[in-house]
Nucleic acid binder design. Structure first.
Lengths: 75, 75
DNA sequence: TTGTAGACTAACGTCGACA
DNA sequence: CTGTCGACGTTAGTCTACA
């Protein structure tokens, strides 16, 4: 499947749980809205720094975020 | 400090715990030795894919690896 | 064994615009 | 509100080589 796809799924799901749209999340993370779009569709991979930024605004720890990615990815 | 520095410290420490040199770790991860060197000194950041590759050969889950980075980073 | 350097390709991440 | 496109600058990651 590719770990980017798993990441995209987790990101999209968690964002919606918090009632945020892509634009709002992007603003809070100081990232570009179009890049959030690419990440959610598994077209791009986040760097370590981006993982930390996203986790913070998704109100979870980076390790929790990665844990969910692992679970979706199936290792 | 920067999250790359924290990552580099964790990577270096864990690698030595396992008695691996940079070259051996790089080979197992299918990464370049010089890039491992850059990562350990906090000069470069890993992507999500690289985090997963490294974690596997460091015999820990990606989320455990990131957890240690968080602890060193201090959030 | 590790750090460093230079040159290179691919991908990250930004930005403006439009359906 | 989201996907997509094109253009762009920066950085991840490779490779060869030398101290």
């Amino acid at each position: 499947m590719g770990v980017e796809k798993a990441f995209g799924f987790v990101l999209s799901t968690r964002r919606k749980e918090l009632g945020l749209n892509q634009e709002e999340l992007a603003f809070r993370c100081k990232l570009d809205r179009t890049f959030i779009s690419l990440l959610e569709r598994g077209k791009r991979q986040p760097s370590l720094d981006t993982i930390f930024k996203l986790a913070k605004e998704l109100q979870m720890s980076p390790s929790e975020l990665i844990k969910e990615v692992e679970d979706v990815f199936g290792n």
